[in-house]
Amino acid sequence: MPREFALFGVLLPTLLPLFILSIVLQTVLDRVFGWLGVYRMVWHPSLARLCIFVAIFGALSLSLYK
């Protein structure tokens, strides 16, 4: 996959759509975990949310560049 792509004449990095997809996936997982009550069992819910986002974004990035 190319390192950048053109969108209406503007070069965008390939990681941008992955970042947006990571935000969407993290939002869905956040709602599911909130509904299941997972965040009541963790010490710091905001830190858990950040870690989930970093893990999703890292996995998507590694799948792109591997």
Rank of each mutant, 00 (worst) to 15 (best):
P13S: 10
L62V: 12
G37R: 08
F5T: 10
G37N: 08
P13W: 02
M1Q: 03
I23P: 01
F8H: 11
L12F: 09
L47P: 02
I20C: 12
P45H: 05
V10G: 01
S22R: 02
L16V: 12
L64Y: 15
V54I: 15
K66A: 15
L7T: 00
L7S: 00
C51T: 11
S63H: 05
L29T: 02
L36I: 02
Q26A: 14
V28N: 00
T27A: 14
F57R: 08
M41E: 13
V54D: 11
A59N: 13
T14G: 03
R31I: 11
I52Y: 11
F57A: 14
R40D: 14
I20Y: 09
S61H: 09
R31K: 10
F57N: 08
I52R: 15
W43N: 04
F53V: 04
L60T: 07
W43P: 00
I23L: 13
K66Q: 13
G58D: 06
L21W: 05
C51K: 08
Y65I: 13
L21E: 07
V24T: 10
V28K: 03
M41Q: 13
Y65S: 10
P2V: 01
M1W: 03
F5K: 09
L21H: 01
V10W: 05
M1C: 03
C51S: 12
F53T: 09
G37Y: 07
L18F: 12
V24M: 11
Q26V: 11
F53G: 08
S22N: 04
G58K: 07
V24E: 04
V42Y: 11
E4C: 00
L16D: 01
M41W: 13
A55H: 06
M1N: 04
L47C: 04
L11M: 05
L16G: 01
L36E: 00
T14I: 14
L15E: 14
V42I: 14
L16S: 03
F57P: 04
V42C: 09
P13G: 12
P17H: 02
L62R: 11
